[in-house]
Simulated scan of single mutants.
Amino acid sequence: MTNPPDSDPTDAPQAAAAPLAGVIGWPVAHSRSPLLHGHWLARYGIKGHYVPLAVAPEHLAQVLRALPRAGFVGANVTIPHKESVLALADIVTDRAALIGAANTLIFREDGRIHADNTDGYGFVTNLRQQAPEWLPESGPAAVIGAGGAARAVVAALLECGVPELRIANRTRIRADQLKADFGARIVVYDWAQVGNMLEDAATIVNCTSMGMEGAQPLRLPLDALSPDALVTDLVYTPLDTHFLRAARARGCTTVDGLGMLLHQAAPGFERWFGIHPQVDEDLRRAVLA
């Protein structure tokens, strides 16, 4: 099982009277993180704030150094800064270094910036919550896509004990790079053979943006897909993608991608505000609203 990020209290700053956190991106207006963290702050009666922070790439370093002095205890990071913050952080966790991106920052009392990646934790925790009978070690996993999200998923699945991890990407060189980075359990398939990759796979993950609102749907030949497989899609707008519907029609258990967003946020919230928050239906409704 993918372990939660370390929660050593020495990593976190002392809570201010009204601690501040936020999400850094460019643009950032689309982010649902303020809804998510705002719901938790209200639920637990915490006198803190979580705000969107639109930061242009050329200002990222300056802003990161200024935020702790402005009362910020940490921040989430979204596109296009998830890779850039690694070079600016003073401490980078092993998982963030392996994935090559960070999504969670902690501003420590000693002035150092601690960078972590909780996406893999969120991915696995979502599957275990929504499909408690899922056994990652029961068979190969098939991952569609080889971008930043796929790297976090691959790292998490390998840590969970999948015996083989198959991956296909429209640009094969990115899938080959994943094999080079993650080792012998990775098997790369050409995009034209993506349907064959599903044969006897126990876990199938769409890590591409195909199926998202405004994008083309993910349409794959599913003849080889076992009805015993668990199928999940990182896309959550819409929640029920064409890919999930097609897999469910074959009898598969399916899990939408919203839970990954919710669970990846929990470790950061706990570090910044001192309470481990619950991910439940009330939270899902608040974020979808």
Score class of each variant (00 low, 15 high):
Thr2Arg: 13
Thr2Ala: 12
Thr10Glu: 14
Ala12Asp: 02
Pro13Trp: 04
Ala16Met: 09
Ala21Gly: 15
Pro34Met: 02
Leu36Arg: 06
His37Gln: 15
Gly38Val: 13
Gly38Tyr: 14
Trp40Val: 08
Gly48Arg: 10
His49Glu: 13
Tyr50Asp: 02
Val51Arg: 08
Pro52His: 07
Ala56Glu: 13
Gln62Pro: 00
Gln62Thr: 12
Arg65Thr: 03
Arg65Leu: 03
Leu67Arg: 07
Leu67Gln: 07
Phe72Ala: 03
Val73Ala: 13
Gly74Phe: 03
His81Ala: 03
His81Cys: 02
His81Tyr: 04
Glu83Gly: 02
Glu83Phe: 02
Leu86Glu: 06
Ala87Tyr: 05
Ile91Lys: 11
Val92Cys: 05
Val92Pro: 07
Thr93Lys: 03
Gly100Phe: 11
Asn103Gly: 01
Arg108Asn: 13
Asp110Tyr: 13
Asp110Pro: 10
Ala115Tyr: 09
Gly120Thr: 15
Tyr121Lys: 07
Tyr121Glu: 10
Tyr121His: 13
Val124Ser: 05
Asn126Cys: 11
Leu127Thr: 10
Leu127Gln: 12
Gln130Gly: 07
Glu137Val: 00
Glu137Asn: 00
Glu137Phe: 00
Gly139Pro: 03
Pro140Trp: 01
Ala142Trp: 04
Ile144Lys: 11
Gly145Asp: 07
Ala146Gln: 00
Ala146Asn: 00
Ala149Arg: 01
Val153Glu: 08
Val154Ile: 15
Leu158Ile: 08
Glu159Lys: 07
Val162Met: 04
Asn169Val: 10
Ile173Tyr: 09
Asp176Thr: 14
Gln177Trp: 14
Gln177Tyr: 12
Leu178Gln: 08
Leu178Tyr: 05
Leu178His: 04
Ala180Tyr: 02
Phe182Val: 04
Phe182Ala: 03
Gly183Arg: 04
Ala184Met: 01
Arg185Met: 09
Ile186Cys: 03
Val188Cys: 11
Tyr189Trp: 14
Tyr189Leu: 09
Val194Gly: 00
Gly195Lys: 01
Leu198Phe: 01
Leu198Trp: 01
Ala201Gln: 13
Ile204Glu: 14
Asn206Thr: 06
Thr208Gly: 05
Met210Asp: 03
Ala215Val: 13
Gln216Thr: 12
Leu220Cys: 12
Pro221Thr: 04
Pro221Glu: 11
Leu222Asp: 11
Asp223Cys: 01
Val231Asp: 09
Tyr236Ser: 10
Leu239Gln: 10
Thr241Ala: 10
His242Thr: 08
Phe243Ser: 01
Gly251Tyr: 08
Cys252Lys: 08
Met260Tyr: 04
His263Tyr: 13
Gln264Trp: 06
Ala266Arg: 15
Ala266Asp: 07
Gly268Trp: 00
Glu270Ile: 01
Glu270Met: 06
Trp272Asn: 03
Gly274Gln: 12
His276Leu: 03
His276Gln: 08
Pro277Gly: 05
Pro277Lys: 07
Val279Pro: 04
Val279Leu: 08
Asp282His: 14
Arg285His: 09
Ala289Gln: 07
Ala289Trp: 00
